[in-house]
Design a protein around this nucleic acid. Structure first.
Length: 425
RNA sequence: GGCAGGUUGCCCGAGUGGCCAAAGGGAGCGGACUGUAAAUCCGUCGGCUUAGCCUACGAAGGUUCGAAUCCUUCACCUGCCA
């Protein structure tokens, strides 16, 4: 197999750290390399940031390697130590449910077939749940030196602050054991992950070296931040952007990427799309020369939406975004176009007879969290119905305001849209 | 087990009896500018039937006309000692 994959990853800026690169190249050239990446179920869904390692697995597979996607049913019960402090444990049923959901999401990003590069999907609970404490301490724990563990960045920071439980302290051993298991069972010789996983990954490399006398590899991808160094994947509203369409609708997902700032869009195209180099460089040029057209952002949004939600969903949200953000008059849209477009946004139902005010409309659609917030929005001049600013909180729609299909288009700020289907009776 | 310190709004962090829905910063939100960018400036930032009321400063009680602030007990965290 070719080692071009490493050059490809480097060009994309996807390599933050790695163990001996020449050794990795030799292993890549020697045949089908097996690699893995783990995903802990810390939430009911993966989020946008997980796309980077997921696509990296896919890139390796397309380059002739065999990927293993690992759902952390065991590690998810413990929790990787974070700088911010001790995690609270989730109950077993919750972790079980989340693990299954994450599993389902992982399946979509690599190809499962009978070929030598066909992907595997594993759950580390399968090889840890029957293990006894004594086995764990003798077989795994004995190979870890407390001094080394105490020297780790995260551990040091945590001990300098709020401290850390033995549970989280042990996380390293679990993840290291995973690598050893996959090495023994599947000949896995490379683990990838985000740069925050470097310590955990190298822990596995060391363990395998001690136990098996073999050098295996580690490679991490950079932490993704936006142009301002903020963490990637926080939507407008502060929440995460999730892969699960029930939590983050394809429309909301698309909008998140359409709104990426110019300074970040080039990097994101490299990280989050499979587009070839020439095409990305053309889009870089387009951003430099005609930034207002947002060609790179649009392409990024389309590509990532297709990767996560499929082509059909992408067509729908592109059409919806075009209809709702176009300069054209909303009144000129026909009922079916409007209905299809608004179906991608949050919607609510109302009856004219109830005499809903603009506050009711904002609250009903979920565009604001409370009536107080709705009042604020109106008084700040950020409330719109059918693209017309509404400055009076007692404003009520009348029959003449209804668009084809009985719709009202309610908007908060520049880009938060929702539909209200009004029964005129 | 003992002693000391801590637990404040989304996050950080001030506040040691009334002037506290709680300083300041960050994030978020809205406006202006623009390109559904960035930067900047302005405004906003617990809830409600909003000149008032309700909920809130780890939990539960108590003192007081009045408590985030004082007392008691409990929980958790940190440090030192055993």
């Amino acid at each position: 197999m070719s080692t071009d994959i490493l050059d490809e990853l480097k060009w994309r800026g996807l390599v933050a750290q790695s163990t001996d690169e020449d050794a990795l190249r030799r292993d890549l050239a020697a045949g089908v390399l097996t690699l893995y990446c783990g995903f802990d179920p810390t939430a009911p869904s993966l989020h946008a940031g997980n796309l980077m390692p997921l696509l990296t697995l896919r890139r390796f597979q397309q380059a002739g390697a065999r990927p293993i996607a690992l759902a952390g049913g065991a590690t998810g019960m413990i929790g990787d130590p974070r700088d911010v402090g001790e995690r609270s444990l989730h109950d077993l049923d919750t972790v079980r449910t989340w693990t299954e959901r994450v599993r389902g999401q992982l399946e979509r990003f690599v190809e499962f077939d009978d070929s030598p590069t066909g992907a595997l999907l594993v759950n580390n609970l399968d090889w840890t749940s029957q293990q006894s404490t004594l086995e764990f301490l003798r077989d795994v724990g004995k190979h870890f030196r407390i001094g080394d563990m105490l020297g780790r960045e995260t551990v040091r920071r945590r001990l300098a602050g709020d401290g850390m439980s033995y549970t989280e302290f042990s996380y390293l051993l679990l993840q290291s054991q995973d690598y050893l298991h996959l090495f023994r069972r599947h000949g896995c010789r490379l683990q990838i992950g985000g740069s925050d996983q470097w310590g955990n990954i190298v822990g596995g490399v060391d363990l395998i070296h001690r136990v098996e006398g073999t050098s295996v590899h580690a490679l991490t991808t950079p932490l993704v931040t936006d142009g301002e160094g903020r963490k990637f994947g926080k939507s407008t509203g502060g929440g995460n952007v999730w892969l699960d369409p029930e939590t983050t609708s394809p429309y909301a997902w698309f909008q998140y990427f359409v709104n990426v700032d110019d300074a970040s869009v080039g990097r994101y195209l490299r990280y989050f799309t499979m587009l070839p180099r020439e095409e990305i460089e053309e889009l870089d040029a387009a951003t430099a020369e005609r930034p207002h057209l947002r060609a790179a952002q649009r392409r990024l949004a389309e590509e990532t939406t297709t990767l996560v939600h499929g082509e059909r969903a992408t067509r729908q949200v592109v059409a919806a975004s075009g209809a709702l953000f176009g300069r054209g008059e909303l009144r000129e849209l026909d009922a079916s176009t409007l209905t299809a477009a608004l179906a991608e946004t949050p919607t609510a139902d109302a009856r004219l007879a109830d005499g809903p005010t603009v506050l009711d409309l904002l609250v009903a659609t979920g565009l604001v969290e409370s009536r107080g917030a709705a009042r604020r929005t109106v008084s700040e001049g950020g409330a719109y119905v059918n693209n017309a600013k509404v400055g009076d909180e007692s404003w009520r729609p009348s029959a003449e305001d209804l668009l084809p299909g009985g719709w009202l288009v309610v908007r908060r700020g520049k880009r938060n849209l929702a539909g209200v289907r009004v029964a005129s009776a």
